[in-house]
């Protein structure tokens, strides 16, 4: 892997730090006119998700990390692993609970998602920004109540629980923003 000097640190660059792959979020060059130059860098540890700030002496370098983001199709879960397939090559990957993390509650078979590969195995999974899922359980819908603004919990086919408007009923398909976990509207399908 190539190594990168502090002046090549860019948002999105993946580097190895303390043995873990990390993604650079922000790199600020700091230098007193008559003093030492530093780079104040915000990083995300791609294994733990932890975001923190570390300062480097300008000119230091870090090894690049063999990390890449791929769009994949979610196939199924066997209870222990989640299985994904690269649509172009049909190559399959299995991700464990740590890699899938919170994305598990939004994954529907056949949906596209982003899988981060580290040394060719899944490190993290990010669901599509918007997913459409079926309501499997909720209190009966209040017909015609589209204006009161009230909400109720609904359980979705994936097991996720979200707040939905009162007029929705079991069996309906709804659209969710996975970044906030919020209901955004009725599904098209």
């Amino acid at each position: 892997m190539a190594s990168y000097s502090t002046n090549e640190f860019r948002s999105g660059l993946k580097v190895m730090l303390d043995g873990d792959p990390c993604s650079i979020i922000e790199n600020e060059f700091v230098k007193p006119g008559k003093g030492q130059a530093f780079n104040r860098v915000r990083l995300r540890n791609l294994k733990s998700g932890r975001v923190w700030e570390r300062t480097f002496k300008s000119g230091e370098s870090l090894e690049g990390a063999d990390v890449m983001d791929r769009t994949m199709e979610y196939l199924y879960s066997d209870g222990e692993f989640w299985h994904f397939m690269e649509p172009d090559t049909y190559e399959q990957y299995q991700a464990d609970k740590d890699a899938v993390g919170d994305a598990a509650q939004w994954l529907k078979e056949g949906d596209r998602c982003e899988v981060t590969l580290y040394n060719d195995s899944p490190l993290a999974v990010v669901a599509a920004n918007f997913v459409e899922l079926e309501i499997t359980e909720t209190d009966p819908g209040v017909k015609g109540d589209t204006a009161s603004g009230g909400s109720k919990p609904a359980t979705l086919s994936t097991g996720a629980v979200v707040k939905v408007p009162l007029f929705l009923s079991q069996g309906e398909i709804i659209r969710i923003d996975t970044r906030s976990g919020e209901y955004v509207g009725r599904g098209k399908s």
Partner: peptide, 13 residues
Amino acid sequence: EDRDTWLDLLLTH
């Protein structure tokens, strides 16, 4: 590091 580098670090950060 030397004293001045630590002082620069504390001052800037």
